[in-house]
Amino acid sequence: MSPFNEPIAKVEDGETFKIETRSPGIPDEVFEKDYSDGNYPQRILSITGPVYIEGAQSGDLLEVSIDKIDLKSQGKMWMGQWMGILMDEVTKPYLKKVNVENGRVFFNEKISFPVKPMIGTIGVAPLEEIDCLRQGNHGGNMDVLSLAPGSKVYLPVSVEGALLAVGDVHAAMGEGEVLGTGIEIGSVVTLTVNVIKAKSIKHPLIETKDSYEIVVSNEDLVEACKEATRSMIGFIREKLNITFDEAYALTGQCAHLRICQVVNPLCTVRFEISKEILKI
């Protein structure tokens, strides 16, 4: 993601639009090679964008509502010696193609499970170019399960037009993404964008029907957990006007720290708290 990428489209503040995300472009022959020499293939994400949002300026907050995700009919999952939490224990590349239909993923003739579509990568342009595999305050490759239909994500705008990009859609994914992939699949995503003027946040914030989630990424998983905890304490204090001690105690009892993914350049966690606790 980059402030220098030319927009593929422009949309108005408050507009609903559709954006097509590509199926994973990794060719099948990648998984037929011998990588004993350590010359592994490059990891690449297929991202669509950026989309220029009229009226968005640096210092604003972009609200992105995920209205709908329509999936293609076939997805892929894979692993190799170059990816996944157990990549040092993997001896050969693995690719599995699955059919996705009637709301289910068909793993094999005996095993199927429900589709749970989500967006793996969504973000705005940072001030400096960042690889799409990485995540940060701009969003990026966060792989958060709740980036799903019915949710909103709030992202701090750093450049004119925000330059929103979306991709890496999954038909399903286990929390943590330990394999290194979800069920990667092409899709058509329906989004609605709203610009909140002169308001910013430090980390991406997700709003679901029932909760708020603060998303934090760091090279060190423990440091990501610490920063997410600090951010949740601050969020609770702002909403309830209580002391640090009270907010910390409430965080420890009522908020839930979850690991989103541990296989990208940075680890990502989310801290979730119910709207019921916040009286919202």
Results as ranks from 00 to 15, higher is better:
62 L>D: 08
54 E>H: 01
112 S>W: 06
51 V>Q: 08
112 S>T: 06
92 K>R: 12
42 Q>P: 04
122 I>C: 02
59 G>V: 00
125 A>V: 02
120 G>P: 06
45 L>Y: 04
116 K>N: 14
74 Q>R: 15
89 E>T: 13
29 E>C: 14
51 V>M: 03
30 V>T: 02
104 R>L: 11
58 S>E: 15
95 L>M: 05
83 M>S: 12
109 E>G: 03
37 D>E: 03
53 I>A: 09
76 K>H: 11
146 S>G: 06
78 W>N: 09
117 P>I: 05
44 I>N: 10
71 L>S: 07
70 D>R: 07
128 E>K: 14
137 N>P: 14
95 L>Q: 07
76 K>Y: 09
42 Q>Y: 13
29 E>Q: 11
140 G>L: 00
85 I>H: 06
111 I>K: 03
88 D>K: 14
99 N>P: 08
97 K>T: 14
130 I>M: 11
107 F>P: 04
67 D>I: 13
48 T>F: 02
93 P>D: 09
66 I>S: 10
126 P>K: 08
130 I>N: 11
128 E>G: 12
123 G>Y: 04
56 A>K: 01
94 Y>S: 15
140 G>D: 10
26 I>C: 00
85 I>N: 03
112 S>Q: 10
107 F>Y: 14
74 Q>W: 10
62 L>A: 04
50 P>R: 01
143 D>I: 04
